[in-house]
Design a protein around this nucleic acid. Structure first.
Length: 522
RNA sequence: GGGGAUGUAGCUCAAUGGUAGAGCAUCGCCCUUUUAAGGCGGUGGUUGAAGGUUCGAGCCCUUCCAUCCUCACCA
């Protein structure tokens, strides 16, 4: 990209020539009366010559970026793109005058112009604007990739020499968006999905809130945080890994139904389904339990799919997936039994570990101290790969999270004694929606017993001291809030990026993030 | 972090270790209903960076940078 590049040099010369002709290449505003799609959509062919003459009085004003130019001596065809699509312009020297036509010759692909003229149909059938005048609105200095679009006789669009370098596409998304129409569509769909989710939640009287991104105690998930520093207060701060604990405080405060779309930050690896910052929507509902959340998750996802596809059936990279409610619901231990035949409820911890070793199932020995974690790990290694169609996997071992309520069937003595009996696994009312093998979210019947909450945080701290890297830190203020009293509550966190990937058939999370994190070029 | 692959003109891509090329874009000329417009003629390169082997390196070797795939980690 050196500045001596011939193409850029040439364009700077053109810019000078344009200025010398008395034209401001960067004017301040332009009155647009029509969008390209409106012009094409509302066009009807005139009945006869007389009507065609009259039509010439109906002037449209349309603006956009030049995407193709075909010059033919004293007449020029070009296509401009606006936010509704593209439209062809027909500009004749005799119509616009000599000086304007001279300026037209100085224009390039990438320049933004506004034109006034009347719609007509060309000899080859394309609805176009016959221009009486045009105005340069912005001169482009950086040459764009030249993408040729061919419309076949069957109406199919073939894109030639597409701008395909993924690295450049992510780093210079503005160019990607100009040139690659499907990229634009993906982000329009992302917006529609988010809007749909909001609509569904608002329909049930959920209330949108905002909670802190900078937190002095992070929590609500198992993840390593980004650490920063506040100068004036001279304290470390963390970028949130979750907003869960704040939303629950709001339920304590009396907002019975709250939701927030939120950027979470996790200091971990980057791959096809992980970006250091990503979007979740979380919502909390007082007086409900996790079965209410299952119902709402189904509805939120199904409705979002309908909003952009008009059907519940999607094709993700060749896999047919139907998001129609109701989804399959299965206990984690039953999923394991179905897949492996192993009845973990009636098998000792050591025998499960033995089974995993015998079957070459990956196993982290750091988890060997807890039967619950062994079971969760067995599930992840064996069952996840089959969870293509939407399914709720529920009732996880309590060791997987300190924020979730144990099953209602337990007596308080059983929960009390769980530490003393290593073979006794306490299960919690948690579920994860799986689609296409991905955990799309996470949900609990929220723990609101402050005594147990405190104990579970303490156990997390203990495990942290024992070497586990990603445990929940103890949050005193949060426990205080629970002590004030949180009503029976259920909550959900849903991964928005992954949902958008699914619904837009995107392979990489970067394809659904406008500006994914890239290593800076040195 | 491990393994595999890629990086050549503005874009998309070629090039047995032996003169770096094509299409589009760009520039000049012709062309007043073209549409991947067309015709004729030009310009354009530190082959990601730095070393090395060789008479000779885009190609072989080393290191580095970036990206992709994959594994690990990870809601």
């Amino acid at each position: 990209m050196n500045e001596q590049n011939e193409l850029i040099k040439r364009r700077l010369e053109e810019l000078d020539e344009i200025k010398k002709l008395g034209v401001n290449p960067y004017p301040h505003r332009y009155d647009v009366t029509h969008k390209s799609a409106d012009i094409i959509g509302s066009y009807t062919d005139p009945a006869d010559e007389a009507e065609a003459e009259i039509r010439k009085q109906f002037i449209v004003s349309v603006a956009g970026r030049i995407s193709a130019i075909r010059r033919m001596g004293k007449a020029t065809f070009c296509h401009i793109k606006d936010d509704t699509g593209r439209i062809q312009l027909y500009i004749k020297r005799d119509d616009v005058g000599e000086i304007s036509y001279k300026i037209l010759k100085l224009l390039d692909i990438g320049d933004i112009i506004g034109v006034k003229g009347y719609p007509f149909r060309t000899r080859t059938g394309e609805i176009s604007v016959h221009c009486n005048s045009f105005e340069l609105l912005t001169k482009s200095i950086q040459p764009l990739p030249v993408v040729k679009e061919e419309i076949t006789e069957t109406g199919e669009k073939i894109v030639h020499d597409a701008f395909a370098d993924v690295e450049l596409r992510y780093r210079q998304r503005y160019i990607d968006l100009i040139v690659n129409e499907n990229v634009r569509e993906t982000f329009i769909n992302r917006s529609k999905i988010i809007k749909s989710i909001k609509n569904t939640l608002e329909k049930y009287d959920f209330f949108e809130v905002e909670t802190p991104t900078l937190q002095s105690v992070y929590g609500g998930a198992n993840a390593r945080p980004f650490v920063t520093h506040h100068n004036a207060l001279d304290i470390p701060l963390y970028l949130r890994i979750s907003n869960e604990l704040f939303l629950k405080r709001l339920v304590v405060g009396g907002f019975n139904r709250v939701y927030e779309f939120v950027k979470d930050f996790r200091n971990e690896g980057i791959d096809r389904t992980h970006n250091p910052e990503f979007t979740q929507v979380e919502w909390y509902q007082a007086y409900g339990d996790y079965t209410d959340s299952m119902n709402l998750v189904e509805e939120v996802v199904e409705t979002a799919c309908l909003a952009i596809h008009g059907t519940t059936k999607i094709n993700y990279q060749g896999t047919e997936i139907d998001l129609k409610r109701p989804w399959k619901r299965i206990r984690m231990v039953d999923a394991i039994k179905e897949k492996t035949g192993l009845d973990v409820l009636n098998t000792t911890k050591d025998n499960i570990i033995l089974y995993m070793k015998q079957n070459n199932i990956e196993f982290d020995t750091k988890l060997a101290h807890s039967k619950g974690l062994v079971i969760a790990s067995l599930f992840e290694e064996t069952c996840e790969e089959d969870l293509i169609q939407p399914a709720f996997v529920f009732d996880h071992p309590i060791e997987t999270t300190p924020l979730c309520k144990p099953l209602r069937e337990y007596s308080s003595e059983q929960i009390e004694n769980m530490k003393n009996d290593t073979e006794q696994v306490i299960y919690v009312e948690r579920f994860e929606p799986y689609i296409n093998k991905w955990e799309l979210g996470n949900s609990y019947t929220e723990l609101n017993d402050p005594i147990l909450q405190r104990r579970l945080f303490e156990q997390q701290e203990e495990r942290g001291r024992g070497g586990e890297e990603e445990t929940h830190p103890f949050d005193d203020d949060f426990v205080r809030a629970i002590e004030v009293g949180m009503p029976p509550t259920t909550g959900v966190g849903l991964g928005v990026d992954r949902l958008v990937m699914l619904l837009t058939n995107s392979v990489n999370i970067r394809d659904v993030l406008l500006f994914p994190l890239m290593k800076p070029l040195t």
